[in-house]
Design a protein around this nucleic acid. Sequence first.
DNA 1: TACTCTGTTGAATA
DNA 2: TTATTCAACAGAGT
Length: 263
Amino acid sequence: MPELAEVEYYRTQWNDGIGKTVQYVNVHSGLRLFRDSCDTTIQYHLAGRRFISSQASGKQMLFRFSGGFWLGIHLGMSGQLYTSGDGFYPGLHDHLVIGMSKIYLNFHDPRRFGRIRAQLSQNEPAWWHNRPRDLLSKEFTHDSLRHFLMVHSRSSLKVLLLRQDFFPGIGNWMADEICWRARLHPALSGKLSAEHAKLLWRTVRAVCRDALRVIGTNWKTPPDHWLFNRRWKNGGKCPRCETGLRREALAGRTTCWCPTCQM
DNA sequence: TACTCTGTTGAATA
DNA sequence: TTATTCAACAGAGT
C-alpha cells in the first residue's frame, strides 16, 4: 500500500539510472494504467533521452528526461518500482520497462490500479504544477487545517485524512497512525476544538517525518511502539495501554483504533 | 471450488 | 455543493 513514505522509497529505486540514456522501452499497451493514452508517447518518444532527475510529492512521482520529456507515475495500490541488471526478462506484471546500459527501470503492478502519464513540454506538466502543497512544507499551516476542518465539519476524521487534495500522501495506515498518536477517535467529526486541531496538525507532521525516516530511506520495519505493526491482524494490542484494538470498516475502509486511548 | 477481503482513485449516485 | 458508494483489478486467504 504505497503511501507517502513508500512512494519516496520507490522513487529512489530508479536513482541508479540517473544520467544514463534510454536504449529500449517496453510497454504493455492498452492497459488502464495508460488511460491518459500515453503508452504510444512513451513507446515512440522516450528512447534516446537521458534520465535527469526525479521528485515525489504525496503519492505522485515525476521523472524528468532530456528534451522536455516528463514521466508521471502513481503506484495505485500494488505498484512498485525496481531495477534489474543484465539478463532481465519482463514478467507478466512489468507493464513498463526502460532499458539502459546495464540497468532496467521497471514498473510492476499486479492490480493495475496505478497510473502512468507522459508529456513532451519545456515546462513541467500542469497536473504536477497544480498539485497540493506537501504536508511538511511551511504552506501546510495550522490555520489552513482549522479552516479545512471547519468547512468539512460533518465528515469523520478518517475520511478527511484520506483526502489527497488536502493531505497528499496520507493513506489508510498513516491515517490510523495519526489518529492513534493524537488519541483522537477516527469517527470523530471534523468539529474539533482549537487544541485538538493543533494536536492533529502536529501529529500529521510528526507521522510524515517518522514514516519518511524509517520507510522512505531504506524501508525498515517501523518500531513496535507504533500502531503500524499491530493493526493488520485480529487480536492486536494497543502499544500504549495493551487494550485489544478494534478493527472495523469506517467509511468503507478498514480502520483500527484503541477503544481506551482514543476518545 | 467459490467466496471474501484487500486499498486508491475517480465516476456515479444520493 | 457535498457526502457516500462502487467499479476498476489480481491475488491471497478461508
